[in-house]
Design a protein around this nucleic acid. Structure first.
Lengths: 255, 255
DNA sequence: TAGTGGTCTAGACCACGAG
DNA sequence: TCGTGGTCTAGACCACTAC
């Protein structure tokens, strides 16, 4: 691993440092390998540790590095392509082991949720929290909001696991007419962060899905995907699979 | 604006500070207003400026704040919903003023691009860079890679504006059979950052689209959307528009 | 010129993981 | 116990904007 000596350029040190590190990583390191520790790297490049960390922050945001306290900074595996579509996301897809129910609550809707569901504030809403596992790892946490009116006359279960299953089965049975989605950047709050086994503030891709059935909004799903390890994929009709998924990044840089 | 006094909790100061700031902003500030300056805020909450900045970093990542050097920290407007679909993205949609061509180059493909296009390295590829304007502001920068084989016998224009138009018109005429997309988090490199009028390292949503025509990959688009101001929307068939876009955030918190 | 956010430093201590 | 990354501090200087 080269020595460095940042030239006196008008760009910030941490940005130049990032560029140098990208080159070094691509050339001399491979997935799973551990970088020298931060204090040594900082010394090697002649910068303060905080400045080095600023560069590492960037690389972590890009999914190139994972930093583990007590372990070190390791080269991350390429991001996992996670299909986001009706088959994968809709509660009906119980057959695919993609989602695992965490818990389920039934309560009057908060004003915000009511507004987004298009129902009266205070109307009963079931909230099913689920966890999406990919290759055995928690990749996304979801809150699925279902107006009680959309799944009327639920059996009077007491166990929340039973109610969750009941709600999901109802949705599955009635099917959906369509869905509309949005994706934006967010940070994981405490609860989500815990489910995703990450610290609070972890960047996430927030996927908001509206499921329509019988001309009404049947459910609203807010899913937070780990931005460090996930690449959301949206397959579409008629698409031709050409690329056998080449390496991974470095392509945007190569424009 | 309240005084603060961070309680001695086991969570990091900057995270607690973020929570306090979120509440304060939601309660006492509205879009466009300017927060007290960083030095004063730090003093008010009894923390170092760096710690305060860590909290502000989070809020900026969430799109709640925009910090302008020489001006101050202002409350950001809600994110703009940006439609991402065939009508908006496909070069054929010249009628919509969404995209503006920046430049166009014709050159042998780099190994990375060749691999992703499923062509031989060194084969000729046209690269059209475009800028997506929403409400007059630059929201996304795109590199559209088109194998020369997909648009054969282009007229021998010299001006790159003409060649760009020519390539796009060809694509438009032949139409597409389908497309497949992926979305992931990235940071803006120097060139993209300049187009987006943001500093290098700005977080972006990277949308990669494969356009298929006649059973082959006709084009590959890599678009980088400003993560701070954009919410990507994917409209779908049969979807029911229920929400008239309520306020904005704060809903995920309210789960 | 004065005020803002952006960068950078040198140091300290803490929390976690492995031995 | 030791080494790692995570947090926090107090201060300095720079770059940009407005006046």
């Amino acid at each position: 691993m080269g020595q460095g000596q940042l030239s006196a350029v008008p760009e910030p040190k941490y940005w130049h440092l990032r560029t140098v590190l990208v080159r070094t990583i691509d050339a001399e390191f491979s997935t799973g390998q551990i970088l020298p520790n931060e204090r040594e790297l900082a010394a090697r490049f002649g910068v303060a540790r905080a400045t080095l960390r600023q560069a590492l922050d960037q690389l972590e945001l890009e999914g190139r590095l994972v930093r583990r306290r007590g372990i070190g900074t390791v080269i991350a595996a390429p991001r996992v392509g996670v299909p986001v579509n009706r088959e994968e996301g809709w509660p009906g897809a119980q057959r695919s082991q993609a989602w695992r129910v965490v818990d389920c609550t039934t309560a009057p809707a908060t004003p915000q949720i009511a507004a987004r569901l298009g129902i009266k504030p205070g109307a009963i809403v079931h909230t099913v929290r689920r966890l999406r596992l990919v290759q055995g790892k928690a990749m996304a946490a979801e809150s699925l909001y279902v107006p009680d009116a959309a799944v009327p006359n639920l059996p009077g279960f007491t166990a929340e696991g039973d109610r969750a299953r009941s709600v999901l089965r109802r949705l599955e049975r009635q099917g959906i007419d369509g869905e509309s989605r949005s994706v934006e950047l967010g940070v994981a709050e405490a609860a989500e962060a815990a489910l995703l086994e990450r610290p609070p503030g972890t960047p996430v891709l927030v996927v908001t899905t509206q499921y329509a059935a019988a001309g009404k909004l049947a459910a609203l799903a807010v899913s937070t995907y780990r931005a460090d390890t996930c690449k959301l994929t949206f397959g579409e009709t008629g698409a031709v699979e050409v690329t056998p998924v080449p390496a991974d990044a470095a392509v945007r840089t190569a424009s």
